[in-house]
Amino acid sequence: MKFDLVIAGVGGQGNIVASQAIAQCAMDAGFTVVNTETKGAAQRGGSVLSHVRLADREIYSPVVPHGQADVLLGFEPLEALRYINILSKGGKYIINMAPVPTILANMGIDTYPSEQEILSEVAARGLTGYRINATQAAKELGNVLLTNVIMLGAFTAIADILPAEAILHKLLSMVDPKFHEADIRAFRRGREMIAAQL
């Protein structure tokens, strides 16, 4: 048994917290776990990719090889597209369809691709998955910073490799108790958003 997850997003979206909750939870469950991220200058708004690999045997490369990920969580559509080729043929994606414009797109130097362009690139690969607007849902819950927790909840609705409650508990153990109530709501909201599409 092996399970490979990648999380693509923008620095500051809470990508690394989400990957740590899953990695720590997998370790508690007795799996071998390897995890890495490209985060050099990520807190300065760059592209961030986290890799979480778990297995019931030895794992070698900390980086998920191209074409092998079981799940891609795209916290942002352009970043999901950038790393879409890491997904395996039978893999699933969940993409938060809320664009974060790049500075160059803001300046009119680059063109941020349309939703249609992004979706057709994904479809051209025969890949399937789910699209949600986690950013909008987070705003409705009162804080845009809950986006990553919604995405984490959504993940647990499509991957049964680890119990959802265990991931939630691990997440809560990593954050200030004053955020617990909001995090629990956001986590459940993410699960519901996927359940509605199943």
Binding site: V10, A42, R44, G45, S47, P65, H66, L104
Partner: peptide
């Protein structure tokens, strides 16, 4: 990467088609 080694020694390519267009870069910013 594992992919480079597979390609060089096993002649395997990752299989996924390249992205159709150059997608905008997202460099770190102030």
């Amino acid at each position: 990467s594992a992919a480079i080694i597979r390609q060089k020694l096993l002649g395997e390519n990752a299989g996924n088609p390249a992205l159709a267009s150059d997608i905008p870069v997202r460099p770190p910013v102030l």
